[in-house]
Amino acid sequence: MMEAKYEIGRLERARGEALIEQKKLISDRSRLSSPVRVAAVASEKLGLELPSRADVYVVKYDQSSNIVRAKGAYKRRHAQTIDYAGVNREL
């Protein structure tokens, strides 16, 4: 009986320490994933920025068209930014 009580006490202490560590990790993870921090790192270190409306393309599946036409149309329209975001490579 006494042994069990010692064991429970020890496990409770261990759980308490684990909870403290968990709280710290949650706090650290949230801080690191903050959009303010991510945007700052993305722009300062990687030269990225939030996409504007013009940067976003909607890719629609169309039975009547074909992939060759889509690629050609895309290249004609965006000859200057053909490497943007790797969209052309996917096509």
Partner: peptide
Amino acid sequence: REDTKNVLLVS
């Protein structure tokens, strides 16, 4: 978008 700009059709 409500217009057809920036829409790519693929099949």
